[in-house]
Design a protein around this nucleic acid. Structure first.
Lengths: 103, 103
DNA sequence: TAGACAGGTTTATATTGCAGACTAGTCTAT
DNA sequence: ATAGACTAGTCTGCAATATAAACCTGTCTA
């Protein structure tokens, strides 16, 4: 019973940051997204988006492919299997928390 | 559509901190809890619990009543209406996020 | 009277999130 | 040729956090 109330206690901090959970939520449904698309969808500044993506990459949650559209840099991001797994686990914990606190 | 994916973007940061959402989740169901009970249930250290409670009190989310059990200090915490409202709003946002990211 | 316990506060450290400035290369219009 | 805008960052500086640990006051217990 009270274990459910604590379902958020050991939540994945990397994902629990709103900016990053929003990024992951987008990547979970679009298969692949470029930097500018994420920039517009998340409303983050370039600097912050860049840093958040780097952290997610470090954790192995997203794959970042730097390529070119003609001669203009193009950064493509997609979620890894591991990222999807972690994100689903996170969603599960949120769900448990929400349900265990139903009045 | 994509607005739902961003439902966490403007989440209440005060509540989004796991330690505090767990505290609120407990207070939401017990009507009133003393310091030691919260200490055991949350697994936090005294210092951290104290600080988190103070922040929740500052925000008007919990009421802290310092009294005595015999001659031993007793700190009673209960959630305010405002706290319940904020907590429910938070739960709603989590729920929206979880549902909008269903595969 | 030494120790542990209740219920904290204070301090120190370490990490973070964020905005904004700066960089580097490309393209566009004048 | 050059100013301006665009992509995709990095870096800097600041403010806010979270956390553990030390400290404190008072009470009770052996």
């Amino acid at each position: 019973m009270s274990g459910d109330l604590r379902s958020l206690a050991d939540v994945n901090r990397l994902i629990h940051e709103p900016s990053r959970s929003v990024i992951l939520a987008i990547l979970a449904v679009v298969e692949s997204a470029d930097f500018l698309y994420l920039l517009r969808e998340t409303g983050l500044t370039k600097g912050n988006l860049s840093v958040h993506l780097s952290k997610l990459e470090e954790a192995g949650y997203v794959n970042i492919e730097k390529t070119y559209r003609g001669k203009i840099p193009l950064t493509l991001c997609r979620m890894t299997d591991r990222g999807l797994q972690a994100f689903n686990e996170y969603r599960k914990q949120l769900k448990q928390f929400v349900e265990s606190t139903k009045e």
